[in-house]
Computed example of a mutant assay.
Amino acid sequence: MLFLFAALVFLPAMQTRKLVVDNLVGDGTIDRRSILGQDQRARIEAQKPVEAYFKSIEKERNEPNALEAKLFRAGFYRASAPLIYMLCRLGAVAVGFLVMYTLLSRILPPQIPGFFAFAAASLIGLGCIVIPSIMLDRFENKQKQVYRRAFPDFMDMMITCADAGMSLEAAVERVSQELAGTHKWLGIQLSIMNLQLRAGKPLREALRELADRIGLDEAKALAVLFRQSEELGTSLTDALRVYSAEMRGQRILRAEERANALPVKMMIPLGLCIFPVVMMVVMLPVIIRMKGIFF
């Protein structure tokens, strides 16, 4: 209950207070020595808490919730996903408490009072609250891998459409239709981006929100690339081609990094499983012969 109170009540209140304090910082250039300046400063100080409060509420309404954004990046798009996630955390706490209390009540001797088993089961049950968070992180990383595998194809198709003379908005619409069959999840994200472009949102803002939704560094770098190319007036096709080559080079480097880390990871199963068997095969005939000679 303390964890839930801190997560649902205390932390949002502290964040709201921080937003209000941040908005209160910084006075204008007012002459504090004059009576008019002191009066004006008093009015500003009286008005600032009200303005800061409404600004903080407006900011909280406009910005998406961190939990909802994390669930969206993990692939859970329903509106009831945050509620289900909180119920899963409560269920993990309850199941962990019941399981540990049952085990401890059977394992511990009867001389130990039951309060010790109850306290230990309560602590372990509260520790189980992190299990849904760990699973959510795993789902998010898995979804990022899906996006990362599909992103080079998206870049190649964007380059092809740009070389054909299509505008960027038309290229995004065409690529989202093509990727809907091969890469489902990235196609869904591009369809959302296409709807935002149709609603009148600028391309760089739509790309920035796409990068926030999928959580990829490649998408964030692409949004920065579009913005710099638009500000500097350079050729977008050449920039996309260079960035696509760099991204494929990074994929090769990540594959080489995993391949180089494989011998180190193989040392544990080799030492635990294969090395004892090899020692038994080598030393067993020597032990049998020594037994026949000396014993």
Rank of each mutant, 00 (worst) to 15 (best):
A180D: 01
L71E: 01
V20T: 05
L2I: 15
D27N: 04
A180I: 02
E205S: 08
L207E: 01
I268R: 07
V281C: 15
R289A: 14
E257K: 11
M247W: 13
D153L: 09
L71W: 06
N62Q: 12
L232H: 07
P82L: 12
A206Y: 09
L24Y: 01
E256F: 12
V277C: 06
A223P: 07
A221L: 10
I159N: 08
P110G: 00
P82T: 13
L236C: 03
G181F: 02
A221W: 03
N23G: 15
T102N: 14
E58G: 13
K220H: 04
R289W: 12
Y101S: 09
K201M: 12
R41H: 05
K59H: 11
L24V: 01
G292E: 11
L19C: 02
T102Q: 11
P152W: 07
A13S: 13
K59C: 10
E257M: 11
V264N: 08
R204T: 13
K291Y: 13
C161P: 02
L203I: 15
A255C: 01
L103K: 01
R248Q: 09
L8K: 10
I192W: 06
V130E: 03
I287T: 05
I214P: 07
I293D: 01
L236N: 04
R258G: 13
A245S: 08
L222H: 06
V99F: 10
L168Q: 02
G26S: 00
Y53S: 12
I288L: 09
A79G: 14
A261E: 11
E209D: 11
V99H: 02
E178T: 14
L2N: 06
R41S: 03
Q15G: 09
K59A: 14
S34P: 00
Q15W: 12
L104Y: 03
A119Y: 04
S176T: 01
K55S: 06
G233T: 13
A6G: 07
F295V: 12
A199T: 08
Q47T: 14
L8S: 12
A120I: 14
R138K: 14
L232G: 06
K55M: 15
L87E: 07
A94F: 13
N141Y: 06
I107F: 06
L210W: 03
E140M: 04
S80M: 02
R174S: 15
G28A: 05
R61F: 03
N194W: 08
F97I: 00
Y243K: 01
P263C: 06
A239H: 01
Q196R: 14
L232V: 12
M155T: 05
L98P: 04
M135K: 09
M279K: 11
E173L: 14
E140K: 02
L186H: 08
Y85P: 07
L11E: 09
Y85H: 12
A52K: 02
L168F: 06
E218H: 08
A120W: 06
S229L: 13
Y53Q: 12
A164H: 03
V9M: 14
P263S: 05
K55Q: 15
L19M: 14
G233Q: 04
E178V: 15
A7R: 10
E169V: 15
F5C: 07
R198N: 03
E246I: 07
F54Q: 00
A170S: 13
N141E: 06
P82M: 11
F151V: 11
G249W: 07
